[in-house]
């Protein structure tokens, strides 16, 4: 992909992250000055357990080209089990989306701890590149027209 094409489309990416791990992981990426693309908009929530599937749908409705959901690794949840509950829901929800033909390349889940600033920066870089390649999420935009 040439430089001009790359800049031609800049995806909108929404990241729902938990307050205690991934948000702090993103803070650490900043403290360590780890550069990553500026497309991502972080929405801070207390816990991945709080992240409801309706939030994911709403993000697409608002024109997101990609949604990221991230929180503490299993066993590390600040609230002991919010991420375990979340994981179950995502497992089911992904299957539903798949049946509906919603592109699972548009939704990414990750465990990123407060110590994983590097993982955060790399992850965001990688999925932003992917979102650029995928182009605008036309299918959902058409639904929302």
């Amino acid at each position: 992909m040439s430089e001009t094409e790359k800049t031609a489309f800049e995806p909108k990416i929404v990241a729902y992250v938990c307050n205690w791990c991934t948000y702090l992981g993103a803070d650490l990426a900043g403290t360590n000055r780890l550069e990553y693309p500026s497309n991502v908009r972080i929405v801070r929530l207390p816990c991945t357990g709080r992240i409801d599937f309706n939030l994911i749908i709403k993000a697409f409705e608002m024109g997101a080209d990609m949604v990221v959901v991230s929180g503490c690794h299993p066993g590390d949840c600040h609230y002991t089990a919010g991420n375990y509950h979340a994981r179950r829901r995502w497992t089911l929800f992904r299957d539903l989306l798949e049946t509906m033909g919603i592109d699972l390349n548009r939704i990414h889940f990750a465990w990123i701890s407060a110590a994983e600033g590097k993982k955060f920066a790399e992850f965001i870089t990688e999925i932003t590149d992917k979102a650029r390649q995928l182009g605008p999420y036309q299918a959902y935009r058409e639904i929302c027209e």
């Binding site: 066993g75 089990a81 375990y84 179950r88 497992t91 990414h108 889940f109 465990w111 992850f123």
Partner: peptide
């Protein structure tokens, strides 16, 4: 019920 309970060993191959 499946929602509102969990098993720490639940599969998670889709999560990075």
């Amino acid at each position: 019920p499946v929602i509102g309970t969990y098993n720490a060993e639940d599969k998670e191959n889709f999560i990075r």
